[in-house]
Simulated scan of single mutants.
Amino acid sequence: MTKKNITRLNIFLDIFLLTIFTIIFYLNIPIVSQKDIFIPRGSIKSIITYLENHAYDINKIDRFFLILIGKPQSGFIDIKHTFLSKADFLYALANSKTSLKEVTLIPGETMYFFNKILAQNFNLDPKDLEKAYKKYAPYDDGVIFADTYKLPVGASADFLMEFLVNKSLKRHQELSHKVLREYNENQWFRFISIASIIQKEAANTSEMPLISAVIYNRIKKGMPLQMDGSLNYGKYSHTKVSAERIRTDNTIFNTYKNKGVPKTPVGSVSIEAIKATINPADVKYLYFVKNKNGSHTFSETYEEHKNNITKK
C-alpha cells in the first residue's frame, strides 16, 4: 500500500470515527417529554413536522432514524418516561403502544354526568368538556350514543369530544339509513328526543313500545305528555321530580307546561328505545302508572288510570 493510499485510509477512518462519535453524541442529547404523546396519522415526515411544531426537540434528521427503527403508531402513545435520551425517545416513539382507557355512557344518562365521568377518568375539567361538546354537537344532549368507548389517555377535552361526537353522528346516520332508508337530521333527532323520554320512563325494554304509543296517542289528541322523565335533564338526571319542580321549571323539558316533545333530547338513548320510537305498539293507551312490581300499569281512560293509582 502506497503512502498516498495509507493517508487516504487514515482520513476515511478519521471521518468514519468522527461520524460515529457525532451520532453517539447526537443520540445521547437529553429530551424532556410528556409521558402521553399524540401521534397524528400520516407519514414519518408529517409526524416529525407535527412533533417539531409542538415544541419537541426533534427534526428532519430524526426521520432517517425512525425509518430504520419503525413508524410510530398513531393516536396517544405512552412512552413511560418524561426524561430520556434522543435514542430512547425515538425508540419509544416507534415501539410504544396507544394508551387507552374504557369509559361507559349508560342509556338514559345526561351529558352533565357523562362529562363528570370523563373528567374523573381523564383528569380534565368538566367545563372544558362541556364547551368542547357544544362546539361539535348539534344538540345539547342525546348526540353521543350510549356505549362503552376506548379513549386515549392524555387526550384533550376538545379531542375527546370531537371523536365522540363525530363517531356518534356517523352511527346516527348509518342507523337512520338502515331503518328509514334516509337521514334527515331534524327528523331523526326528533325521534331521539322521543326515545330519550322513553328511556327515562320505561322500567324495562318490553315497556318501551307501550310508552312510545302513549306519547304518540297523547300528541295526536293534543294532550301534554306530562312525563316526569322529561324533567330528568342535565344535572337533574337522578333527581326525583316533585310538584315544586313541575310548578317552577320553565324550560322546554317541562312536558306538564308544554305540549309536544322537547326540541332537544333529554339524555342518551339505547337502540331499543330508538326502535320503540319508530315502531310504537298498536294500542290506545293514554296513561300509565308505576305499580308495586316496579313496572307500569297502562290504561286507555282517565277513570281507569285513577283506579290504577289507588291500587299502587
Results as ranks from 00 to 15, higher is better:
6 I>Y: 07
12 F>R: 01
12 F>E: 04
15 I>K: 12
19 T>H: 05
19 T>G: 12
21 F>Q: 04
24 I>D: 09
25 F>A: 14
38 F>R: 08
42 G>Q: 04
43 S>G: 03
44 I>Q: 09
48 I>R: 10
56 Y>W: 07
59 N>C: 09
63 R>H: 13
64 F>H: 14
70 G>N: 00
71 K>T: 15
73 Q>W: 00
80 K>E: 15
82 T>G: 05
82 T>C: 08
89 F>Y: 15
90 L>K: 08
91 Y>R: 12
91 Y>M: 05
94 A>M: 08
97 K>C: 01
99 S>R: 12
99 S>L: 05
101 K>V: 02
102 E>D: 11
104 T>Y: 06
108 G>I: 10
110 T>D: 09
110 T>Q: 10
113 F>C: 05
114 F>H: 02
115 N>V: 04
115 N>L: 03
132 A>L: 04
132 A>D: 07
146 A>G: 10
150 K>P: 00
155 A>E: 05
170 K>H: 09
172 H>N: 10
186 N>E: 13
187 Q>S: 14
188 W>M: 14
190 R>M: 13
197 I>G: 13
198 I>K: 02
198 I>F: 07
202 A>N: 02
215 I>H: 07
218 R>D: 02
220 K>R: 14
223 M>N: 05
226 Q>P: 03
227 M>N: 09
229 G>I: 01
236 Y>H: 10
237 S>E: 15
239 T>A: 08
246 I>H: 05
248 T>K: 05
272 E>C: 06
274 I>C: 03
275 K>H: 13
277 T>L: 08
283 V>L: 01
288 F>A: 04
290 K>M: 14
294 G>S: 03
296 H>E: 10
300 E>Y: 01
